[in-house]
Design a protein around this nucleic acid. Structure first.
Length: 288
DNA sequence: CGTCCCACCTGATTGC
DNA sequence: TGCAATCAGGTGGGAC
């Protein structure tokens, strides 16, 4: 399940592989749910565009598209907002949300397309950028304005701003961590792992955390996300990066998917409950 | 608006 | 052994 570290790994991998490539043609599957923008609009905006940059915003992969002046894009000039692009170019963004099972793969055309391929962008050098998503929780869209995301970035938020997010929130702290309008990018795995490292029970009311606990949680969340990015993410179900390689952070999980197994710190069996509709894992001894 | 719950999906796993 | 029920969860929309 791709969360911030997995999405960052994929975005960086795709960036390294396709930056500067022109999109010469676009194929889409016709599964309506996958496309947040109309398929025809996606194909229209992408075709002929050059991929200038691929980056992560929250859990969303954002590709910056440019339309060089010497290769005018048939639709860009009229639709791109004036003033936010370099002279002689227009720009747009292609947004990819991986959902639960989405993959963004760079492959040669002679490699068979996997089942559940929903979009294929053929690049100028002949390679294909493929969006594959069996469960179809992923979403593709194009937009003309810069995408900023709904919440704050967990990697750069200050301790004070972090603490302010939870002021007056009656919901459990885990539910607050998962709320993308507060923090953008934290999902089920890293919410559980951050709470475990901070020694805080997932059911604790967000507003009732002490200043010290909030400081520990802020640090734990940043540390766990940075460490997971170093290791290429967690591969617990079907997450893989742009090469199809798995990540290794799951080897360092303290609680996630470890229910019944001994806590790495105190050997108490890890407990699993349902909270906010999600499987939630914690050590009943170490987390209070 | 805050909060809660379910539908959307398919593959893997569990249960009988 | 085989088939059916269950589980996994990011997001968005509806209910209260």
């Amino acid at each position: 399940m791709p969360e911030l570290p997995e999405v960052e790994t994929v975005a960086n991998g795709v960036h390294d592989r396709v930056r500067g490539q022109r999109i010469v043609s676009v194929w889409t599957s016709g599964k309506p749910q996958t496309f947040k923008s109309p398929e025809a609009e996606i194909a229209e905006v992408l075709t002929g565009a050059t991929i200038a940059q691929v980056r992560r915003v929250g859990k969303t992969i954002v590709m910056t598209l440019v339309f060089p002046a010497d290769q005018p894009h048939p639709n860009a000039a009229a639709k791109a907002p004036a003033g936010d692009a370099a002279p002689g170019t227009a720009s747009a963004e292609f947004l990819v949300h991986l959902g639960m099972s989405g993959r963004l793969l760079v492959a040669h055309p002679d490699v068979a397309r996997p089942p559940h391929t929903h979009a294929v962008l053929t690049l100028g050098d002949g390679r294909e950028l493929r969006f594959v998503d069996p469960r179809r929780f992923g979403r593709l869209s194009v937009r003309r304005e810069a995408y900023l995301g709904p919440g704050q970035e967990p990697l750069t938020i200050s301790p004070a701003d972090f603490a302010a997010l939870f002021r007056g929130r009656k919901m459990p702290i885990k539910a607050a961590l998962l709320n993308q309008s507060l923090l953008h990018g934290v999902g089920n795995i890293y919410a559980d792992e951050a709470l475990a490292r901070a020694g805080i029970r997932p059911r604790r009311q967000a507003a009732r955390l002490t200043r010290a606990e909030l400081a520990r949680l802020h640090a734990a969340l940043g540390n766990v996300l940075r460490r997971a990015i170093e290791l290429g993410g967690s591969s617990v179900s079907d997450y893989v990066d742009a090469d199809g390689a798995t990540g290794f952070f799951q080897l360092e999980h303290l609680v996630y998917a470890r229910d019944g197994q001994p806590c790495r710190s105190c050997a108490t069996p890890i407990r699993k409950i349902t909270l906010a509709g999600r499987g939630t894992h914690f050590c009943p001894q170490c987390q209070r």
